[in-house]
Design a protein around this nucleic acid. Sequence first.
RNA 1: GCGCUCUUAGCUCAGCUGGAUAGAGCGACGGCCUUCUAAGCCGUAGGUCGUAGGUUCGAACCCUACAGAGCGUGCCA
Length: 608
Amino acid sequence: MLESKLKKIDNELKFIFYPSNNYSDISSNAPIIISKKMKVSIDTSFEMIKNKLLEKSDTELQTFNNEKTSTEHNHRNLYKYIEKAWLQNGFLNINVSDNFIISGLNNVLDDSFLEVEKKGLNVNLEYVSANPTGPLHYGNSRSVYGDSLARVLRFLGYDVLTEYYINDAGAQTITLAHSVFEEYKKISLSNKDELKNYTDLNPNKGLEILYKGQYIIDIAQKIFKNDGDIWLSKDYIEHFKKIAIYDVLQIIKKDLLSVGIEHQSWVTESSVQEKAIEAIEILRSKGLVYEGILDEKKSSKGKEYKQKLQIFASKKLGDDEDRALTKHDGARTYFANDIGYFYDKIQRKFDWLIVILGADHDSYAKRLSYAVKSLEDVKLTIKTCQMVTFKSGEEVIKLSKRSGNALSLRETVNNIGKDIFRFSMLSKNLDSHLSIDIDKIKEFSTNNPFFYIQHAYGRIASSLKNFTYSKENLYKEENNLNDDKDKVNCKTNGTSGSEIIKESILLDELGGEINSIDDFTNSMKQMSKTILEWRRIIESLSRNLEVHRISIYLNKIAENFHVLWTEGKENESSKFLHSNERLKLILCARKIIRKSLDLLGIEAYEEF
RNA sequence: GCGCUCUUAGCUCAGCUGGAUAGAGCGACGGCCUUCUAAGCCGUAGGUCGUAGGUUCGAACCCUACAGAGCGUGCCA
């Protein structure tokens, strides 16, 4: 009876293990919710829940709880561990016995805490997809978010394919060809009079603003070197486009690599032309495509066209306006081809499509999602990221791609270092408008939270090393060194290279799993709870995709560690060297920190 | 005009799908090192969470209006 009623209010109930507010070990709003729904006093509902919890195992508790706490922590038979349950401000608070926490820590030590079952779900994660018209600039800085998201989702058991969509079919690529030709002309016609008298074959030339930059000159020189001046009298567009896009993509790939990004799949706009035709027919069959003329005031700036167009009736679906699928010259719009691209994704049978767009495309997200949802009811998440502005002191650095003087992504990264760069980009919500003082994050100093975390990791390594020095036989173990996650790098004095021992051997040497902790101080408990909180935070990322929470978490666990360290400064017996329990605890922390950094795509340094 | 995002400490930002006393770093001030990395720890000062209403047992978070900032508002991509 009670259970069936409880199940109905399932989604309002929350049981939070190791809540960050530190009121208790487990906190729940159950008394408030149940008293309201069952029309009993809060005291009565609290007593009911308490009795229920104490008399049985927590299998009920799990059924009430939306979050899959079962994987987060081994808390079967929770009732055995309940030490104290009380009501405060309408909340149920539970304190658990040390053994409960210890069993959680042991799950970390045996790595089961870090294991996740495969979900059997395919995710297509598209991000960056910048036009191939030039090197990436700092405006693309947030692209590391997509990379980290891929790592997180993979960890959580999804099969993720990362993808980059190349717009190789639009007007901008023609502009690119013109831009290269402009330089090609200068190279081919070194004589100034010749240059002056040369008339371009292409009639549309000069209407657009050309791209500039060294890369344009490089491409022009390459073409001249191969072909000489033959293109002066030929239709160069297709050839120049092809070469330029290819070369620019090589640059972009290098740019991405400089921040640690490597897409698995590259799809071109030109390859999804057929899909676009198919997809539009599907939309037409659903009454969402018609031939007509768009509102005059909505038509292209300063131009009036009278040709009928194919139009997507997105207004029907909630958009502000209907959207053109073809242009006056009959060619498909970018939007139409994008529909084709997404139709292609749908046919490739992904369970979840994720797209990360720049802020300048966020109005686009709406119409795209209407089109995709009309094709098929696929799970689609479009995230837009707000812009990053960089400043140096008070001076804001301007972004201008076509003038050729935009600060490039690679320059920016090389300036401040890949890991720090990634960390600062991954510490903030994608929705927030970021303003980064380039002088500050460049500073290789204490001011940077990045070092705070790395320093904690380094100190842990140092502490474990000191322990291993005291155990000669650890060095004698020769083991397979293939498993990266299991290594403890130990640089020994004077010997060549580094000696490596396995964490599992280290753990054996420490006496294996934790049985009990004699002096379980508050700071140790705090550290333990932070460690055990990790799983809940990571799992929440598949819902909110907010990778930056890892960075925030790292800061917290690092802080907990530094406190422990300082205790050792103040009290000899609190030194790690003198406490196997403390060493095991920081071994847990080490695993968690390393895994977290790994999810961010940042290297964990043992020394620096 | 309209759409999206944002507005939290002097500055840069967190705030866990509404929860109990709003947090961190930097900056300011004051303590703590004869060896486990002071790249650290502890403390002090600093906030009517843009403004005004509403919903709720409960709001920084949801709704409405208003004010500011950024981005968009093409038959560009």
